[in-house]
Design a protein around this nucleic acid. Structure first.
Lengths: 241, 241
DNA sequence: CCAAAAGTGTTATAGCTACACCCATGG
DNA sequence: CCATGGGTGTAGCTATAACACTTTTGG
């Protein structure tokens, strides 16, 4: 039975962490993210985005960073604020379960994990990674409104890739262009023409030739590029089909 | 002298409200926004964005809406979350002045006021509107980090105009294309070619012909358009000069 | 030498810029 | 009938989509 009076106001910071890994079935590169199993009410046993209450001494982004370090062992370079979710009725189950009405405002960040950083990922006790597009089947409905948050994050990522060089954030310092194309293909879930992709990226000045080549590949060794600094806004025309 | 222990955590909602009005000197249409003069410490006497503490029973957007209604008399249709500002050292002056360390996290919305809504604007006791680009000279440094927030809001507005039909939010139900162009020109601070602008907008399907014409103008009466529904993403190529 | 990926060239098309030009109205 | 803003047409240019083609490696 809920008590009257002003509900407690809590501020939490959560993160949607995207990494690129091969899909277990198709083998295609695809988006994965880590979820944390809740070990108490509300939503005990359900999967949730990694996060926690805001330490009043910490910056928002620091809070996201330390939670990620704790849960996944990762410290992603790319960490960006996504949205603040804070409707008054956001967590009705919380009220039902605890009996005390608690108003939770979550500030959500999204992180992009570089392929070379991803090697450091360790799965904690109640932490597991899932392919982003299989969450519904494999991780059931998520806790709180995290399904909505995840859908929003995916939509933003797919939109932003067209007018910002964020895709580069998935790659190490130096990389062949084919890998950058694979990142785009994984995010957009669509094949891109290799030759036209190359031309567009080079025309944007989004990357610089390092002069080096990747060794040890089958077939012709590709040139290695590095992403250009300060190129904060560009346009990629994404073909419709 | 600051006390030790966990600082209090406060959650505030503020808004950057943009309306288009003629510039007092040049007469050109330009961006204006309302500021509120602070009547107590910290930053007493300085201008600040309209806002206030979050009522735990209210949704975030409702909080923004009711503050705007109270201060400006407006209820803008377009109200969108901008960013959450919440660094731990965001309001150092607050700590110095009050002696008690208070951590304030502000969730900032931005609003776009339709020209026909703008008529309802009333200036309150400590509320005044300023041309956005003259804030620095006319309203001194703003309270808290509101200068930073305002600069961010302006940057976002100018960028977003290129890939989203938000400019329409400044106009009433039906409008001639020349007015839409003037909105773009005011936001971007740059003249656009009328004939090419028309073609681009029509090619995007961003507007529909209503079949009506505006009456009572000098010269040829322009067609009236209405903005198309569900056209959430489009591309305008903005000429460089 | 063959397969496969890296990388270049080419053609048709679409969209954009710049600007000439016609249209319709109030004065 | 003129000035002015509304609106259309068009030539030159640039970028893109589609795909043929050459290069370079490992096996």
């Amino acid at each position: 039975m809920p008590t009257e009076g002003p509900p407690a106001l809590e501020l939490a910071v959560s993160s949607v962490v995207f990494a690129l890994r091969p899909h277990p079935e198709t083998g295609e590169l695809t988006l994965w993210l880590p979820l944390v199993r809740r070990i108490r009410e509300p939503f005990e046993g359900r999967w949730a985005l990694p996060g926690g209450p805001l330490d009043p001494h910490q910056d928002l982004v620091e809070s996201a960073r330390s939670t990620l370090q704790r849960t996944t062992g990762l410290t992603p370079r790319h960490l960006e604020q996504l949205y603040a979710f804070g409707d008054a009725d956001r967590s009705p189950a919380a009220q039902a379960q605890t009996g005390s009405p608690t108003r939770v405002v979550s500030i959500v960040y999204w992180a992009l994990v570089r392929q070379d950083e991803d090697a450091a990922a360790v799965d904690g006790e109640n932490v597991e990674w899932f392919p982003a597009d299989d969450i519904a089947e494999e991780a059931g409905p998520l806790a709180f409104d995290h399904d909505v948050i995840l859908a929003y994050a995916l939509r933003r990522l797919r939109a932003k890739v067209a007018y910002s060089p964020i895709a580069h954030a998935f790659l190490p310092e130096r990389f062949p262009l084919a890998q950058l194309r694979q990142v785009y293909e994984a995010i957009l879930n669509r094949a891109l023409d290799p030759s036209n992709f190359r031309r567009q990226i080079l025309a944007q000045g989004a990357v610089e030739d390092t002069g080096e080549r990747m060794t040890g590949t089958a077939h012709r060794p590709p040139k290695l590029y590095r992403s250009s600094p300060d190129r904060s806004r560009y346009t990629l025309t994404i073909q419709e089909n």
